[in-house]
């Protein structure tokens, strides 16, 4: 079930376009944000109804873009480490294995307490400050192992 708040957001998004379907991406993202960073089948069905498109088209959109989390649930903090060229040149791999070790999970997995999900990302447009990662909406740049440890500790402390 979508909340009033989400429905209101979707309504706002729809105003930006001449076509209902154009609001699909925004609506999906709004729903995902409001439901713990994950998208369920029911969510997609609901968006399909609101925007009057076939559910499979919603699924197709969700399945095309990497930012929709529908295949498996992600934890509260979704860590995406850029492993494209610039970041790799400056040690992204090292950071990844470090995090795998400290979090006790491998790439693609979520910690048992659902706190962290660790995945990779292709270039996030922050190459001048490589290596970098994105957690939730936030960019963390010029990373070192020490910085990463601190970031993770802070996040843990915060939640």
């Amino acid at each position: 079930m979508l909340t009033e708040k989400t429905l209101e957001k979707i309504k706002q998004i729809q105003k930006n376009y001449h076509s209902k379907k154009s609001a699909v991406m925004g609506a999906l993202m709004a729903v995902q944000r409001d439901s713990g960073n994950n998208l369920t089948r029911e969510d997609m069905d609901a968006v399909a109804k609101i925007l009057d498109v076939n559910p499979v088209e919603i699924h197709a959109v969700a399945g095309f873009y990497t930012m929709y989390n529908w295949k498996k649930p992600v934890g509260r903090h979704h860590i995406q480490v850029c492993w494209n060229l610039s970041c790799s040149l400056l040690g992204a791999e090292h950071l990844i294995s470090h995090m795998e070790k400290t979090l006790g999970i491998t790439l693609g997995e979520t910690t048992p307490d659902s706190m962290f999900t660790l995945t990779t990302a292709e270039c996030l447009g922050s190459c001048g400050t490589a290596p970098m990662m994105q957690i939730g909406d936030d960019y963390y740049e010029d990373l070192t192992v020490e910085k990463v440890d601190k970031i993770l500790a802070d996040l843990r402390a915060r939640s």
């Binding site: 930006n16 376009y17 076509s19 209902k20 379907k21 154009s22 609001a23 699909v24 991406m25 925004g26 999906l28 993202m29 925007l51 498109v53 088209e57 197709a60 959109v61 399945g63 095309f64 873009y65 990497t66 930012m67 929709y68 292709e122 270039c123």
Partner: peptide, 27 residues
């Protein structure tokens, strides 16, 4: 003027894929 957010797809930088995406489809 409006902002349309993508959702993670390099191909949407290609101009016609961008349009497809703006129309709410797969880019």
């Amino acid at each position: 003027l409006y902002v349309h957010r993508g959702a993670g797809a390099y191909i949407c930088g290609e101009e016609t894929a961008l349009l497809e995406s703006l129309e709410g489809g797969r880019g």
